[in-house]
Design a protein around this nucleic acid. Structure first.
Ligand code: FES
Ligand code: FES
Lengths: 167, 167
DNA sequence: CTAATAGTTGACTAAATCACTCGGGTATGG
DNA sequence: CCATACCCGAGTGATTTAGTCAACTATTAG
């Protein structure tokens, strides 16, 4: 699997979207401001999410994004895969050919690991997350803060470069 | 967690070592030849494994490496962590500060994922792997092949660049 | 003694990827 | 028509990956 900040941002943004579902649509600028993600970057992510049919968009003033499916039908695995493509921890990508043309000593191990990770992430939907007390707490904290109208390209970013993949 | 080819090679090499334990020591050159890994690269990996106390070395002719502990006491997680340091899938690295100075919406999720992965990899030891029929099969196949004396720096490498991390 | 073996160390590199940014589009409601 | 918001592609610097290379040092067989 590949699990980078890109995928994490996507899940965070989708969760924000799920939380604010009561509006018809949510503008990316709002998500950007609430979650501290660059707008341009979000646009990139949502383009992929839309192509995969996970979100729907409405253009023009008052427009924005909404979930294309009920929150209970969108799993974290789907989001991560929409962004990062594969979710496979083997070296061969399932081809069983990374040692010469044959299966290597540890293929079985990584293959099983991939399955576990996928099962875990696929078992958690946006609906699950929304009801988590830990999530609700953060949502409340964010609601209290004055929503500063962040203009395009002026959002602070952490510059940490950490990854988390399991190709 | 971080799970790159580096970590995968390390596990493969350690497993090879466990399989050939009946010799006093195993030379890296043998492992390199059997598993198709560059010798110089293996040296780098085993330096770390030795510092972590997972393998012991004997220098000079007839020397090589051996497991520093019984195979049943070396888990895959230990090997991966010896090579890649952390095994954490969060963005904050456990600091809970990746949104401003506070916990982000999805911290809980990545944190739980990290735990699952760690538990899985820590539950599998070299001893477990050695007895796997899938592994035995590969070992037999490798034993049949004539052990070509591969000189330093002449081993073929695949140039695939795939990752698998979960920082 | 000496040559061959094998581990030890550190610096160095090309290529790939990541995490964005920038600059312009295009639809749409008021 | 104009402000809003989505749409899209190209480009970039920093970082990491997956190695290589060269020069040791320890040990032992002969
Ligand atoms: S053959 Fe699939 S990981 Fe090696
Ligand atoms: S605060 Fe830990 S992952 Fe965001």
């Amino acid at each position: 699997m590949k699990l980078t900040t890109k995928g994490r941002y996507a899940v965070t943004a989708m969760l924000d979207l799920a939380v604010h579902q009561h509006h018809d649509t949510v503008a990316l600028a709002d998500i950007a401001a609430r979650q501290g993600i660059s707008l341009s970057y979000l646009e990139q992510l949502f383009a992929k999410l839309r192509r995969r049919g996970l979100v729907a968009s409405v253009r023009g003033p008052g427009g924005g994004y909404s979930l294309a499916l009920p929150a209970a039908q969108i799993s974290v695995a789907q989001i991560v895969m929409a962004i990062n493509e594969n979710i496979d921890a083997t070296r061969c990508g399932g081809e069983k050919n990374c040692h010469g043309e044959e299966r290597c000593l540890t293929h079985q191990l990584w293959s099983e690991l991939s399955r576990r990770i996928y099962e875990f992430l696929d078992g958690i939907t946006l609906a699950t997350l929304v009801t988590e007390p830990e999530v609700q707490e953060v949502v409340l904290r964010q609601a209290k803060r004055p929503k500063l109208g962040v203009p395009r390209n002026e959002i602070a970013h952490g510059s940490s470069y950490e990854k988390a993949d399991l190709s």
